[in-house]
Simulated assay, not measured.
Amino acid sequence: MSTASASQDLDHVIAVATRYIEQHLGEDPLQWSEVIDHLKARGYTDEATLAVTRAVLDLERTDLMFYAREGMRRPRLGDAAPAPLHEVAAAVLALPWPCTRNDRPGGSRSIWESFDELGGRYRHCDVYEAMHTLLKGHELKSSRVYWQRTVLPSRFDTAGRFAQRAEAVAAQPPASPARQQLEADLVAAYVATLRHRYLREHPIGELRADVYEPTVRRVVEAKAAADVVTVAHAWAQAAAYRYAANTLDDRTTVDSIAVLLPVAPAGTARSFLEHVAADCFEVELIYPDGETFRHEQLT
């Protein structure tokens, strides 16, 4: 069969799927499996999954259908509105990776599971689009249906993206996978801007610093939030690294400490850093600023 013929055949099956969905949208949500079964019963087994995917996305994007967590139905007031894809991508990355809600190797999840875990805040078609166009092959990798987090630093973790992710994980405990992933991504994006040597997860006695920069003798502690308690913990940890390095570890010398945050601290959090910098020793404040990182020396 020629490529043109195959394309025409797929277009026909998409049209069949679209008509079936439109004719069966009612009060009771229509399930994906029902549409698949309808196509298979008509002999479209090979094209069924792709055809239903295309039909559903087209109907969602044109607001002729809303794909809710309970199934496909007519749009209603209060349904999720179209959202910027970079915002949706940030929300997907803020989910716990690896996924712990199933026992698949590698902690993978499907697009539908990502949509479901986001609690209906975003349209299914926007989650699909963000994962395929912004995240696939970069922050996420996919093997047919299931997606996993990669070790690559995010191309989209600009100041705005980090701020969105920090807000998304703010209510989660410090040891949550989502906050740990945000800290790891923050560190990866930061060290990518350095022009001198650096060491990640650098051991100092029994402690381990997020980043040690031997050229400038600086130790950096990263956190996923900028509230006063988190900022205080970051400063205390960095100060402990400095003390341990200069008194207990002959291999490491630390002249300065820094805290790396996803957003600039404000109010009490900033006042605390300014106070300890004036009362104890200087501390450098580092946070995303546009496409790079801003450094503030507090004394």
Rank of each mutant, 00 (worst) to 15 (best):
V283M: 08
F293W: 07
V52D: 07
E34A: 13
M1I: 12
V145A: 11
Y212R: 11
G78I: 03
D58L: 08
L64I: 04
A130S: 08
T133A: 08
P29D: 06
L95H: 00
V169S: 07
L64Q: 13
A244E: 14
T3P: 04
D249E: 10
T193I: 10
V263C: 11
T3S: 12
R69Y: 00
W97Y: 03
G137M: 09
L85C: 09
A175L: 09
A224R: 00
Q31K: 14
V283E: 09
E274F: 03
H24F: 02
A6W: 04
P82Y: 01
G119W: 01
V191Y: 11
Y287I: 05
A15D: 14
D227Q: 11
A264L: 09
T253V: 14
I286N: 05
G78C: 06
E221H: 04
A222N: 08
T150A: 04
L194G: 10
V263D: 08
R74L: 15
Q23E: 14
D210F: 02
H196E: 15
R144D: 14
Q237S: 12
H275T: 15
L135R: 03
V228P: 00
E117S: 14
R270A: 09
E113M: 06
T3N: 09
S271N: 14
V35W: 00
V56D: 03
H24G: 04
T230I: 04
A41F: 09
D9M: 12
P96V: 02
A209P: 04
K223Q: 10
L199W: 15
R54T: 10
R144F: 08
A209C: 05
R197V: 12
A269I: 09
V35K: 01
R121H: 02
G267C: 03
F162H: 12
A277G: 15
R144P: 03
A80R: 00
T53Y: 05
A225D: 15
E22Q: 13
H12Y: 12
E167F: 02
P96D: 12
A175R: 08
R155F: 13
L298F: 08
V228K: 00
K136L: 13
V35P: 02
K136S: 13
T150S: 11
D210T: 08
R104H: 14
Y243R: 11
C99I: 05
E206Y: 12
D63T: 04
E22M: 09
R179E: 08
T247K: 09
R270V: 02
D11G: 02
G26K: 02
L85F: 02
E47P: 01
G120C: 05
A178W: 06
H202W: 10
V13Q: 04
R104A: 14
A184T: 15
P173N: 07
E274C: 11
P96F: 01
V220K: 00
S5I: 10
R242K: 11
S176Y: 01
D255A: 09
G26I: 03
